[in-house]
Design a protein around this nucleic acid. Structure first.
Length: 866
RNA sequence: GCCGGUGUGGCGAAAUGGCAGACGCAAGGGACUUAAAAUCCCUUUUCGCGAAAGCGGAGUGUGGGUUCGAGUCCCGCCACCGGCACCA
């Protein structure tokens, strides 16, 4: 393709404009206090999910989201807004380190090279980033503040009475280490031997590591955790006011997994001092509990009796040897073992047996359940397996009782205290009874677990933590940033010991203190980068208060919007990882008074995936990967940008089509030829056809329709239809002779956010001849976006579609000003309709102004004709 | 199993409850050309009738409903995609 004659000289002018933009600094968004800052301009913060700069370079999927935000950024600048549109690099973390190990180079070098390559590729697409604000998470001037924020979390606790994070000094209990938001815990974690590190729950998919797909095992380890669970309720609640896709909100809600229920305390029959607390969402079925189940790892098991049967020990061992995958396999039959100990149901004093079974999970609720086999499928299956009694305590509101009966549409039976109540009321009554009698309480459980934050890898932020006498303390703030030691051999040790342990002189902090050896996960840097962009070079604070308040301030107090980034565009894969973690950090910093908004991202859009031509996900092994560099070489950056926007709705997944790119390329060439002609030598010169003549009525209508449609579509992020309208406009003028300058001028302005190189080049060529043209854009604070005039959109005559009983039977052209009654009258008199109206009685006439008339008739017999 | 999303020509798609298929791709035809490329113009949901202009019927996964009128709103079902899943 590249050997073909170019339809317009993009390869000459695209790099030229890119260079011009870079050198002139036109895309720099001004902070308050900067020379030229305009306090009257609206601020607009539009953010991309910054990339991990992989060795593979830019993907066409990146191009899609980045083009969408670039169009918005350029559009808002033309509207006179002060736009913040930054870019940076999420360059710490596992993939970068894996890549370095594979290529045998130090991650510092590979990261730098990859970043340089990525930056070049982005600039070759003409994206209007403010490169003055470029950041990399691996830069000490950046991760200094990542470490500082960690210390904020370390020195903070969650006060349940205020429902807020507060400085640890306001905590008056005896062990502050028990309540810090960043804490050390000895718990079973996801250890991945292949990667040589532990992973967060969110990074383990079906028992495999999300990165690389290696198997993951449970093992108890001492790790840094974040108490994100204390924010579970706010993380759910605050979703409401965000302009996010419902699907993403739902994903986060499901992940947090709030469920309301009750804790019920059962007393051990032979030892009334010992009690078991269970969690249930079905307190209404308390009378139906016929046995109780403990998770095999339940700590109470060790206290209950020292004389475990051999069988129980064997069972517990077998469970711990199982992988998560085996254990959660729904298809397998349930296993369990009776403990030989009974407990007492508080509601009726009934003595029921205690079992141990691995269908009860230790890390949800209390690790113990009351089993109600008549109303829970799992309990039912277990009871069948081991011949345990099944007692129905709810019957359906209508219809036959089937067991197990799970539905909420039921009435309580066999339960003296709550007999005959509907389920919801019964729940409340039981909880009230439990609380009054000290046998339990209403409570809320979450699926969300605390966030495992430490990794046993080299390429990440070191923790600003010191250890002395087996106790941790914060590294003094003035010693930040704490840079990782330079190491030649930074590979995982093959054991649970982090590689930093090998840097012995770095590890030793003083005679008696050593440094923390773990590093932070990749999420650390991406949790707050959007804040740093507001003030990327500030050295005194993670972001200056003034800049943060300006770019993140509440945009709409009336609508109770929380504010934050005005538009955030990225892939759906971050729905429950990055987007949840960032919200958590943000809320902590907000509670501590460092930020002015409770949420980071007001509006979120997920771009769909770009698939291969075969409709499959692009992958090297399928051989269907499209390289953006090659598309740029053949068709130019504008064509690539425009094509990806024309493919379909931004949120949809859609397959790549090379002929589709050619179609867009042809369209851009048509725009070019509106103004340019090629002479015999193949040189392009300005066409004599362009003239300063007034638009005809019809032309003016097309131009103003286009202004309106493109403006509204850009604001709605409906770029495909905006482009369609521009095509219609170009089709209108391609054969206009002469072509009015005004049409061309308007079209170029409308096109400039989408295909900026072509628009700039033509504008600049035209303005050499037509001095009436001012600058295309980017001159600050003056709106240069075209305005449409509704008057020009109207037609003098409109054609009505005439229907009889909903079927089109004719048309009628009338002056646009014709009154409804006159339209009706004209329609009834229209000759083409008469055959359909003969023998009929007109029952009703519907007139939709400017569009259609529907005549509803009835036969004399009284039947409506259909 | 639960939650969410999507179903419209050969393909990507478009349609404030008001002429379904704009715009683009692909396909076919024409103009220009010695020829090709490029460019420009025309046709293109489908079935029936017609030499043709045209006329008539059907049609937005599927079955119902609301409405003068449904791709669009409501109820049921089917298929595909994504997420969660022994979470009590």
């Amino acid at each position: 393709m590249s050997t073909l004659h170019k339809k317009y000289p993009f390869s000459e002018f695209e790099p030229r404009w890119q260079k011009h933009w870079l050198n002139s600094g036109v895309f720099h968004g001004k902070n308050p206090g900067e020379p030229g800052f305009d306090p009257t301009a609206k601020k607009y913060y539009i953010l991309d999910m910054f990339p991990y700069p992989s060795g593979d370079g830019l993907h066409v999927g990146h191009v899609e989201g980045y083009t969408a935000t670039d169009i918005l950024a350029r559009y808002h600048r033309l509207c006179g807004d002060n736009v913040l549109h930054p870019m940076g690099w999420d360059a710490f973390g596992l993939p970068a380190e894996q890549h370095a190990i594979r290529t045998g180079q130090h991650p510092k070098e590979t990261t730098k090279r990859n970043i340089d390559h990525f930056r070049k590729q982005l600039q070759a697409l003409g994206f209007s980033y403010d490169w003055d604000r470029e950041i990399s998470t691996t830069d000490p001037t950046y991760f200094r503040w990542t470490q500082w924020i960690f210390l904020q979390l370390y020195n903070t606790w969650f006060n349940p009475t205020t429902n807020k994070a507060e400085p640890i000094a306001t905590y008056h209990g005896n062990d502050p280490d028990n309540v810090r938001l960043a804490y050390i815990a000895d718990i079973p974690v996801n250890w991945c031997p292949e990667l040589g590190t532990v992973l967060a729950n969110e990074e383990v998919v079906n028992g495999k590591s999300e990165v690389g797909g290696f198997s993951v095992e449970r093992r108890p380890m001492r790790q840094w955790m974040f108490r994100i669970t204390t924010f579970a309720d706010r993380l759910i609640h605050d979703l409401e006011a965000l302009d996010w896709p419902d699907s993403i909100k739902q994903l986060q809600r499901n992940w947090i997994g709030r469920s309301e229920g009750a804790e019920v305390i059962f007393t051990i029959e032979d030892d009334p001092e010992k009690k078991i607390t269970v969690f249930t969402t079905r307190s209404d079925t308390l009378y139906g509990a016929t046995y109780l189940v403990l998770a095999p790892e339940h700590p109470l098991l060790d206290q209950l009796t020292g004389t475990f049967s051999e069988a129980l020990n064997t069972y517990r061992k077998a469970c711990s040897a199982k992988s998560d995958l085996e254990r959660t396999d729904l298809a397998k039959t349930k296993t369990g073992i009776p403990l030989g100990i009974n407990c007492i149901n508080p509601i009726n004093g009934e003595i029921i047996p205690i079992w141990v079974a691995d269908y009860v999970l230790i890390n949800y609720g209390t690790g113990a359940i009351m089993a109600v086999p008549a109303h829970d499928e799992r309990d039912y299956e277990f009871a069948q397996q081991f011949n345990l009694p099944i007692r129905s305590v709810v019957k359906p509101a209508k219809g036959e009782l089937t067991v197990p009966f799970i539905s909420y549409d039921g009435i309580i039976i066999n339960s003296p205290l709550i007999e005959g109540l509907p389920i919801i009321e019964a729940k409340i009554a039981i909880i009230k009874w439990l609380e009054e009698h000290g046998h339990g309480r209403g409570t809320i459980q979450y699926k969300l677990r605390d966030w495992l934050f430490s990794r046993q890898r080299y390429w990440g932020e070191p923790f600003p933590i010191l250890w002395e006498n087996n106790e941790h303390r914060a590294l003094p703030e003035e010693e930040l940033p704490l840079e990782p030691p330079h190491m030649e051999d930074f590979r995982p040790t093959g054991t649970a010991e982090p590689p930093l342990a090998k840097a012995s002189s770095w590890v030793r902090y003083s005679e008696s203190a050593t440094r923390e050896l773990n590093t932070m996960p990749q999420w650390a840097g991406s949790c707050w980068y959007y804040l740093r962009f507001c003030d990327a070079n500030h050295s005194e604070r993670f972001v200056s208060r003034e800049a943060e308040e300006y770019w993140m301030h509440t945009i709409d107090k009336e609508q109770q919007k929380p504010g934050g980034v005005d538009l955030y565009v990225g892939g759906v894969e971050h729905a429950v990882l990055h987007l949840l973690y960032a919200r958590f950090w943000h809320k902590v910093l907000f509670d501590l008074g460092h930020l002015s908004t409770p949420e980071p991202f007001q509006r979120l859009i997920n771009q769909g995936m770009i698939l291969g031509y075969d409709g499959q996900k692009m992958s090297k092994s399928r051989g269907n990967v499209v390289n953006p560099d090659e598309v740029i070489t053949s068709y130019g950056a504008d064509a690539l940008r425009l094509y990806e926007m024309f493919m379909g709705p931004l949120e949809h997944s859609k397959p790549w089509s090379t002929t589709g790119v050619e179609g867009i390329y042809r369209f851009l060439a048509r725009v070019w030829r509106l103004a340019m002609v090629e002479d015999k030598e193949g040189e392009w010169t300005l066409s004599d056809n362009v003239a300063e003549i007034p638009l005809s009525h019809a032309q003016r209508r097309v131009v103003h329709t286009t202004i309106k449609k493109v403006t509204q579509d850009i604001e709605a992020l409906s770029f495909n239809t905006a482009i369609s309208q521009m095509m219609i406009c170009v089709n209108e003028f391609i054969n206009a002779n002469p072509c009015p300058l005004e049409a061309l001028q308007t079209l170029l302005r409308l096109l400039s956010p989408l295909a900026p190189h072509l628009a700039e080049e033509l504008w600049s060529l035209l303005s050499k001849k037509f001095t009436s043209l001012q600058s295309l854009g980017n001159s600050a604070s003056q709106s240069q976006w075209p305005q449409w005039n509704e008057e020009y959109l109207t037609f003098e005559e409109v054609t009505y579609v005439l229907q009889v009983n909903g079927k089109v039977r004719g048309r009628l052209t009338l002056p646009a000003t014709t009154e409804k009654e006159a339209v009706e009258k004209a329609a009834l008199n229209e000759s083409t309709l008469q055959p359909y109206l003969a023998d009929q009685t007109v029952q009703k006439v519907i007139v939709v102004p400017g569009r259609l008339v529907n005549i509803v008739t009835i036969r004399p017999a009284g039947q409506i004709v259909v």
